[in-house]
Design a protein around this nucleic acid. Sequence first.
DNA 1: GTATATGCAAAACCTTTGCTATAGT
DNA 2: ACTATAGCAAAGGTTTTGCATATAC
Lengths: 167, 167
Amino acid sequence: MADFQASRNENAAEFRTRCRELGIPLTVQRRIIFEALLERKDHPTVDEIFEGIQKKVQGVSRATVYRVLETFVQSGIVRQIYSDGSAVRFDPNGSHHHHLVCSHCNSVSDFEDERLNRLPLPNRDHTGFQTENYSVYFEGLCRRCQKIGAKSSKRGKQQITRNGKER
Amino acid sequence: MADFQASRNENAAEFRTRCRELGIPLTVQRRIIFEALLERKDHPTVDEIFEGIQKKVQGVSRATVYRVLETFVQSGIVRQIYSDGSAVRFDPNGSHHHHLVCSHCNSVSDFEDERLNRLPLPNRDHTGFQTENYSVYFEGLCRRCQKIGAKSSKRGKQQITRNGKER
DNA sequence: GTATATGCAAAACCTTTGCTATAGT
DNA sequence: ACTATAGCAAAGGTTTTGCATATAC
């Protein structure tokens, strides 16, 4: 599609500009990883990003994905999402949005509500904390797990491995 | 102190009651781990809880700490905190509160504001998500890291290992 | 040409699990 | 007595790191 190509080129150009501004060298790997992030609508783990890239090109190592994402986070290009600790998830740093976290399957989806974008911030004089950003995390059950929950045992938890693959 | 003892006994009694209600056997280890959590005002990792216990008594294994905390989370006795993915943190499930997360040192502290306790929830009909709880995560710099940041390099990040110990 | 990034493989770290013994009800 | 838990040690999964090479500026 022409649109797709166009948006890719736009992204590429914008990405180059951003790297210039931030003073970080633009490498092929960084561009690939950045595009891989943009193409996903969910909040992938390192492993998911790595696998997505592998399907297309060879020659981006897992260690590089880790290092590049760390660079991106420090530069503010992407945000690290607070997750259940089993694996970090990432989010291209776009609009101000919030998160719905399923306590059953640990999936994370976005949620936007204008009213949540004007919350009172912690008072720095009082807390000593300098707020740069915030996000509301709603915990509960996603649609799918509500159905599953209805027919599974009370305390049972969906059996998934740490990387989300089924056993 | 008498007060300290009293509160310990109160906790112990309350904990026994809670276990009864939940139908989970009350073991020594569970009581110790629960008390270890209550004694801390921060949001310890499994490792921190384990070490805190080891200083006092022998005979609680790391695996037990993991398993007991998992039980606690499933029973709703404690909450798992969304954190940076390197290690899960826990919180005794008390009042509705929010979190200040330092993007520099990853410390987590509590924040309460009455106004944050009446946020609009995601509409279930619309999102399919059944909200059970929520918490606002403020990201920024804690007091200590603001000072450090002032004298450290622009992109430098505090050197800490994954378990928070300095190198 | 110099500084920084990458790849690889190994290490470090965090968490889970199988099995047996033990303890709670 | 029956059932669930704890301990140990080993395995599994995730992330970091040292060093040589390659790449961006």
